[in-house]
Design a protein around this nucleic acid. Structure first.
Lengths: 204, 204
DNA sequence: CGAAAAATGGACCGGCAAGTCCAGACTGCC
DNA sequence: GGCAGTCTGGACTTGCCGGTCCATTTTTCG
């Protein structure tokens, strides 16, 4: 992915991707030109096409991947260790904090719209991100089951899917309205639902 | 809103909005030009600017409003009468069906991205849509409470917000992955959660 | 050191699409 | 029937922006 013969080349490429991500967050995809990217990253047109021969779309796709990688990273270490109510609460707070900080701009959503559904690459990035995210949530729920905090009969995958949907929707609405109420409601109601199914009252 | 002196004028304006909506659904905002709109609606450039003096953005905004109006309409009559489990189920099916038919294109989302968060108009449209939608859900939940099907202590507004978020997220994910699993999971889990709080066991 | 490969700078091109303009056709109304 | 306002057609302008090209510099490596 980050294939470049020399160290300098790799550094430049990385600078381009990161700089583009910044610009994109600030002014949105629609309003960002290659010249903006040039300005921000201190590169020339030929460099852009040297590292992304297929042009703007290829660059945007690289940025999308870059942003996608951050999404789950930003939820760590909480997301990887969802085995108690306390850890779920910490994760919930991390998610809310991350998206409130991000404000009303969704880099991935915008990129996705621009590059287009048609592009197999874009779709693959989002699909993979969602799958990983849901996998984390599901294994968190299973951990709760193991600890006797959640009913063993619960349909784990469906519940994880619903929770993920709630988060996505909460973020979407927040970006439209600037209000994180829905995101919090989705998270809290989702966790509460898990709690409601409580299996055998837990010991320890 | 649909201000035009003559009947002919109003008809033309409507034709432009509806035609543009079609084109947009087919090829997305990014790839749609005013000439595409011209072609589809059988109009001339001057007509476009006659009815939408501020140009493309104004047209897109009008289309956004047009699409927003459809969203709730398409869920009627179910959305307006959510007073029994059966009616909730019918509504759930209507939502799934509507979005599965719509496929992987979200007119509103795309329009919103294009016109930009910055535009006060765009934000207002989405905010109002969400508020109305949530109000419908909330009054549906209250109806269930009245009928003794849901715990009176339930935080209605928060639950409605969470459900709405789930739907939004389900739709978002569906558009990215082409799979409606998450939408269904969100709806079903949300309704199940309501059921789980069941107040006095219902009679009838 | 010297040649090949990589990296960089920036002028240039070409097309596209938004928006302008004015002339002419239609409509309604008295 | 005629005039005022509305509607329509389409050629034209304009600026922007993605992409090309080649000359120059820097790095790598034997």
């Amino acid at each position: 992915m980050t294939d470049a013969p020399t160290a300098k080349g790799r550094a430049t490429r990385a600078r381009i991707v990161e700089g583009t991500a910044e610009v994109l967050r600030e002014q949105g995809v629609a309003c960002t030109t290659l010249d903006d990217v040039r300005g921000r990253t201190g590169t020339s047109k030929s460099q852009l096409f040297h590292y992304f021969p297929a042009g703007k779309d290829e660059l945007l796709l690289a940025v999308a991947q870059f942003e996608a990688d951050r999404v789950l990273e930003d939820q760590q270490p909480h997301l990887g260790r969802l085995d108690s109510w306390e850890s779920w609460r910490r994760w919930r707070d991390a998610v809310v904090e991350r998206y409130e900080r991000q404000g009303d701009h969704c880099p991935l959503g915008a990129l996705f719209l621009q590059v287009g559904r048609s592009s197999p690459g874009a779709r693959a990035i989002v699909t993979e991100l969602m799958a990983q995210w849901q996998r984390h949530l599901a294994s968190g729920i299973r951990a709760l089951q193991t600890n006797g905090l959640v009913a063993p009969a619960l349909d784990v995958d469906r519940t994880a899917a619903a929770l993920l949907a709630g988060i996505q929707g909460g973020v979407t609405i927040m970006m439209s309205t600037g209000d994180s109420t829905h995101l919090k409601a989705a998270l809290d109601t989702g966790i509460e639902h898990l709690r409601g199914t409580a299996g055998a009252p837990a010991r320890t």
